[in-house]
Design a protein around this nucleic acid. Structure first.
Length: 382
DNA sequence: GAGTCCCGCCAAGAC
DNA sequence: GTCTTGGCGGGACTC
């Protein structure tokens, strides 16, 4: 029996990636609320802890108590990514946004303890040993890994690079090795969710990962009865608009070209280029006033916005510049940024520091300009 | 041989 | 004391 088992055994069958796929197949449904780890543990239980920790880091599940997690769904991922990006930018560039109570509530919903302890908090912490453990946790490491993608202009990130970025250079090689192992775990989970994809650095052929983000979320939500799921798990968004009665995901997907044309006719503030257009001609993005009454409507279609963004992003490439610098990035990255910002603004009006990509200092933007840009972004999503 | 990552030990915390 | 959780690193497996 043992030799037979050994013959048919394959490591890949027990990989974290396969486990996550099974996990999502089992729970990515609109009728799932509670997840019992005992039920989920079709494989070795230790691995379940790895999976839920990583999924929890992006808000897909939330711990309710011993052996119990709640399924939050892919609808909760964009706002969590928004918060992670915000925190990552703050750490990277020293931008200090004002975090509202509602956002802290969101943090608390995602995790019962805060994302990361500030130095002051650490000083006052009752248990330095516990803090040290938290800092090393897969959950924190996964969040920091995501931040690297969200806050980097590089399209590809190697695990080596990520390890160095997430660790002090002074740390010993053994520690590095351990951390790389964990990053492999995290990368495998995110890969199996299509949140990232594995590829290679063209020049060096070294393995690297590319962030897919909104695309994976849109697909995951679209494939799993998004309307009812979103209604249940995103009550906050409802507060900013009335009931959606004339907007479906299907319509959003098929009508995106119409939406785009409508947008282009209504707004001169951003221009979307079609692929067949001359890709070398950059389009300058300016900031005229837009119809701010659309802000309320943006709240209505928030649930569908990701799908719309995905369609737009897969169909178009955007080149633009702002008054700070010129840049060129895949459109889906811009769309993702916009979705995150709009979501933030809708949940906490006025608090988000909207500024063009590439601007490293929020001060270059006046409040009025930010309002215009926000209206611009919301119009584009609509 | 380097890269990848499964496996399970065992410490810490929860109950 | 038992159970749950999860950091950690050995070493098997893959390329």
């Amino acid at each position: 029996m043992e030799s037979l088992g050994r013959q048919s055994y394959s490591r890949k069958e027990k990989s974290l990636g396969v486990l996550v796929s099974n996990f999502l197949r089992l729970y990515n449904r609109d009728d799932v609320d509670l997840i019992g780890l005992d039920d989920a543990a079709g494989v070795e239980r230790r691995r379940i802890y790895d999976v839920v920790n990583i999924l929890e880091s992006i808000g897909l599940v939330a711990r309710r108590g011993k052996n119990q997690y709640s399924w939050r769904g892919f609808g909760q991922v964009p706002p969590v990514l928004s918060l992670l990006k915000e925190e990552g930018m703050r750490e990277k560039f020293g931008i200090i946004p004002c975090v509202t109570n509602s956002e802290m509530v969101l943090y608390d919903q995602v995790r019962e303890e805060p994302l990361k302890l500030s130095p002051d908090d650490q000083e006052n912490s009752p248990s330095p040993k516990l803090d040290s453990k938290k800092e090393k946790s897969l959950w924190v490491l996964a969040q920091n890994f995501v931040k690297l993608f969200l806050c980097s202009d590089d399209d590809l990130i190697t695990l080596d690079g990520a390890t160095k970025a997430l660790l002090n250079v002074s740390q010993d090689p053994m520690n590095m090795r351990t951390k790389v192992r964990r990053l492999y775990d995290i990368a495998n989970v995110f890969s199996s969710m299509n949140l990232i994809e594995k590829t290679h650095i063209p020049e060096t052929k070294k393995p690297a990962y590319r962030w897919l983000g909104a695309k994976a979320i849109a697909e995951a939500r679209f494939l799993t009865a998004p309307a009812s799921l979103c209604d249940r798990i995103e009550p906050k968004k409802r507060a900013f608009g009335t009931e959606i009665t004339n907007f479906t995901t299907k319509r959003a997907k098929t009508d995106c070209s119409i939406d785009r044309k409508h947008y282009e006719s209504q707004n001169t503030c951003s221009v979307i280029k079609q692929e067949q257009c001359d890709s070398k001609s950059a389009v300058k993005r300016s900031l005229p006033p837009a119809d701010t009454s659309k802000k309320t409507n943006a709240g209505k279609s928030n649930n569908q916005s990701i799908d719309v963004l995905e369609n737009l992003s897969s169909a178009h490439t955007l080149q633009y510049c702002n008054h700070v610098n010129w840049s060129s990035r895949p459109l889906h990255r811009d769309m993702e940024d916009m979705a995150c910002r709009v979501w933030s603004e809708m949940t906490s009006p006025g608090r988000y520091y909207n500024y063009p990509m590439g601007a490293k200092n929020a001060d270059v933007f006046s409040l009025q300009q930010r309002k215009h840009l926000l209206a611009d972004q919301q119009s584009l999503i609509l």
